[in-house]
Design a protein around this nucleic acid. Sequence first.
DNA 1: GAATCATATGCCAATACGGGAATATGTCAA
DNA 2: TTGACATATTCCCGTATTGGCATATGATTC
Lengths: 112, 112
Amino acid sequence: MPRAATSSDVFNAVAEPQRRAILDFLATDERPVGDLVKALGLSQPSVSKHLRVLRQLDLVRARRDGRRVLYRTNAGAIRPLHEWAGTFERFWSQQLRRIKERAESTHRESRR
Amino acid sequence: MPRAATSSDVFNAVAEPQRRAILDFLATDERPVGDLVKALGLSQPSVSKHLRVLRQLDLVRARRDGRRVLYRTNAGAIRPLHEWAGTFERFWSQQLRRIKERAESTHRESRR
DNA sequence: GAATCATATGCCAATACGGGAATATGTCAA
DNA sequence: TTGACATATTCCCGTATTGGCATATGATTC
């Protein structure tokens, strides 16, 4: 079995750095494809292909405006990722607490 | 250019569902490989290969205990993912606010 | 309708994948 | 040392990938 398709879920879709760059770029405003081509320095076909993957997962939404197509990020579709990663939050903060405690006790040691 | 290697960054590593399952399973306690094999229903070689990818990115840490090797999740390595996704939080909550407002105004309409 | 601008799709190459089976390495116990 | 147990590595296969280039589709203007 090969790797899951990039368009199979959000995790696979955002594994590609250029697609994350696209989501970042389209987060605040809607933009035509041409703007992305300029901003990312990729070829126009490459950008269109990335947008297709993102559109299939509803990570971006498109709207036609004359001869251009305006895209924008649909932030809500990124939530599942944030939530999954968030389930580990209590573990890493626990770890940070332990490190801090150890640092403090070392500090006390050195003052003796 | 092919897809980036699974071991190239955290985003690619956690794109694989079985690897996320491993991270979930090892989040609370350290466990030997055999436990993972039982819990995930995967072959032992498959599990070892997934663990290798995760270890290369410091997403899990290993410790030998006799003939077994105990693994545990290093939650801190998941933070970058949580933080990237978190940059979109203000956008999706904005969207939710807009939806709520619209629902309320519709409610007022219908009461007139 | 023809020319033009903006975007999408098709085909190609090289590459890395995940799973299975077989085998290698490492550790303990008798 | 030999055997048994636990884990890691190697080899193979079918598959989906990203990016480049050429080309198709869609919309506008003349």
